[in-house]
Simulated assay, not measured.
Amino acid sequence: MDRNEFADFLRRCRARLAPTDVGLGPGARRRTPGLRREEVAQLTGMSTDYYARLEQARGPRPSRQMLTALARALRLTDDERDHLFHLAGEEPPRDRGTSGHVPPGILRVLDRLYDAAAQVTNDWGDILAQNALAAALVGDVSARPPADRNMVRRFFTERPGPSLTPAADRERHARTHVANLRAVLAARPDDPGPAALVAELRSGSAEFAALWEAHEVAVQRSSITRFEHPMVGLLELECEVLLSAEHAQRLIVYTAQPGTESYERLELLRVLGLQDLTV
């Protein structure tokens, strides 16, 4: 690992970002341009001390998961992400199918949707990035291990227990998840991610296996989605799905019709979620 070059690259990438570039408020006047170290640490889920040591060329060699988090927090392009990995002495991810690296432009859109719940997923269900309201709505995935960030896996393996999906809607959601996954697998049969997920769920979930045998195919599209949220109650939200074909990713945005009870509850959840983030 080239610690000096790694540290210099981190400092320069941090200096070129404004707080508004990453969805943060401008805050008090800053003596120097760019994000503060503690803000980058917050965005990556590491301690400020750990990040400071990386910038001072005296930190430990970061894990691949941490490098990915840094690339996302600093809004690196694919080329810059690969450079960061090389400086750390790691081989960059070679995305044989779907990419886990969210393009900076998509992240900027995500950051600006402060009054809508929005998250970026790959096309087979891994949640790659969330804004604060999405974390409050469906749960913050940032601290979960990578295998626990897949929506389809969690849907079919977390029972019994409380669910955000109303019981009356479960069958429809289950069929949609399976039909979408079948379409993805057929489009990219050599992609190891969706193939492994299908194999795992066919052997581990009788519900999934039965639906898979039905051979239904459908790509996830915009819809009306209901959530039974433990804090604010039932929400009926408009789900818009925006596609990034190049990266096989989706920006999923949940909004409510103004003037409705769901709109008021989503606004309440936004306030409660932001309060929770400050404790």
Rank of each mutant, 00 (worst) to 15 (best):
Asp2Ala: 11
Asp2His: 09
Asn4Thr: 06
Glu5Gln: 10
Glu5Arg: 12
Phe6Ile: 02
Ala7Ser: 04
Arg16Met: 09
Leu17Trp: 02
Pro19Ser: 11
Asp21Tyr: 08
Gly23Trp: 02
Arg29Glu: 15
Arg29Leu: 12
Arg31Tyr: 02
Pro33Trp: 07
Glu39Gln: 09
Met46Ala: 15
Ala57Val: 00
Ala57Lys: 00
Arg61Val: 07
Met66Phe: 05
Ala71Arg: 00
Phe85Gly: 02
Phe85Lys: 03
Gly89Arg: 11
Gly100Trp: 15
Leu107Arg: 15
Val109Met: 14
Ala116Asn: 04
Ala129Val: 04
Ala134Arg: 06
Gly139Lys: 12
Asp140Pro: 09
Arg153His: 14
Arg154Glu: 05
Pro160Arg: 13
Ala167Leu: 04
Arg172Gly: 08
His173Ala: 10
Arg175Lys: 12
Val178Glu: 01
Leu181Tyr: 07
Asp190Met: 08
Glu200Gln: 13
Phe208Met: 05
Ala209His: 08
Ala214Asn: 07
Glu216Trp: 02
Gln220Asp: 11
Thr225Lys: 15
Arg226Ala: 06
Met231Trp: 00
Met231Ala: 06
Val232Trp: 02
Leu242Cys: 09
His247Leu: 12
His247Asp: 14
Ile252Gln: 09
Ala256Met: 08
Gly259Lys: 07
Gly259Gln: 05
Thr260Trp: 04
Glu267Trp: 04
Leu269Arg: 03
Arg270Val: 00
Arg270Glu: 01
